[in-house]
Simulated scan of single mutants.
Amino acid sequence: MELRHLRYFIAVAEELHFGNAAQRLNISQPPLSAQIKELEQNLNVQLLERTNRSVALTEAGEYLYELSVQMLARLEKETAILQEIDRGERGKIAIGFGGSVVFQILPRVLTLIKKQYPKLEIHVSQLTTKQQIQALLTGDIDLALLVPPVGEKELSTHPFYEEKFIVCLPKSHPLASSTGPIAMEDVSNEPLIISPREAGEGYFEAVRSLYVKSNTVMNIAQYSTEQQTMVSLVAAEFGISFVPESTSHIQHHNVVYKEIDVTHYKETVLTWHKHTQTPLVHGVVELLKTFKV
């Protein structure tokens, strides 16, 4: 049984007249009659009761008619979906992101994607930079918003956005109530809470270079991969932490966020695997290249 058999049968079942059905299908009547007879033989079922003056559906024919209409409607719907997938308009995409992206950037990114691709199923995962790179290489995620550098040749990057570093202090800190930016020399050698290098070299080096730029001493007291945990450790007076501006959205009654007297940025890049660009991934990459903070 082929799809044409079902289409021919539907026309005959609705017209109950071979001549009218043949005209509707834009074919001659003898081939149509032969195709219906072939369908009955293939199914080993009588679908039509024929006389010289009339054509009527048997009970089996009525059932096949309803089934055929449903099948062709489903096929038409699924074909449209297949075409949308082929055009990169529908499907699934997995996006990895770092901790600081979640507060301001991620909601705007997801809104932008959903507006352009309303039929897209998006999966997001919060991962360290190292985890994001590994997930891109294995195909577990399609895109990532991470802190460079990215040394893997299989991965492509595009500058995404920058945000300034600020300092997170315990509320009990002597500088917590000061006005104006905090001088780096005033917090030199203080216990520092920082993301470990192995979680993401870019973030670690960005903070380290802040100390180098200001000619101050870096004194690591505690490591944390999550921004929320960093803030909690500062609140518990384990030390201070230099965090991106967006981290200030984590409110805690026992911390304050202050600007610093050295302008220093954390960079985030859009990253994807250059050899696994489906039309959908390619489209989302091009869309996100237009993103403005």
Results as ranks from 00 to 15, higher is better:
Y63E: 15
V281Y: 04
L136I: 04
N215I: 02
M218V: 05
L82E: 14
E267S: 11
A73F: 02
E162W: 03
N215K: 12
H253E: 15
N42K: 11
E259L: 14
H17L: 01
L155A: 01
G99Y: 07
L72F: 07
V243G: 07
G91T: 05
T138A: 00
C168G: 10
R7T: 13
Y63P: 00
Y203D: 00
L39G: 05
L82Q: 10
L67M: 07
M1H: 11
P196C: 09
V101I: 15
H264A: 14
F291Q: 02
H275Y: 06
P107V: 08
G139Y: 04
H158P: 02
T157N: 01
L75A: 14
L3F: 01
D186F: 08
E154T: 06
N42E: 15
R74Y: 08
G19K: 12
G151F: 14
H273A: 11
M218P: 00
L3K: 14
D86E: 14
R50C: 12
S232P: 03
A144S: 15
D261V: 04
V231F: 12
R50H: 07
E190F: 13
V255H: 09
L64S: 05
G283I: 07
F103Q: 02
V102I: 11
L3E: 14
I95E: 02
M184T: 12
A21L: 03
P279D: 06
P149R: 02
V12N: 03
V231W: 08
E38M: 03
Q35K: 13
A235E: 10
E198L: 13
I85S: 05
Q132T: 03
V293N: 09
L192T: 14
L137A: 01
P170E: 13
R4E: 04
E237N: 07
V256R: 00
V284G: 00
L136Y: 09
L137E: 15
H264Y: 07
R7M: 12
E121I: 10
I85T: 06
Q134A: 13
V167G: 08
K115V: 04
A22W: 09
L169G: 09
L287M: 04
E59Q: 10
A94Q: 05
A144N: 02
Q222T: 08
S68H: 10
E49D: 10
G139M: 03
S195F: 06
A135I: 03
V256P: 03
L3M: 09
T225N: 05
K119D: 09
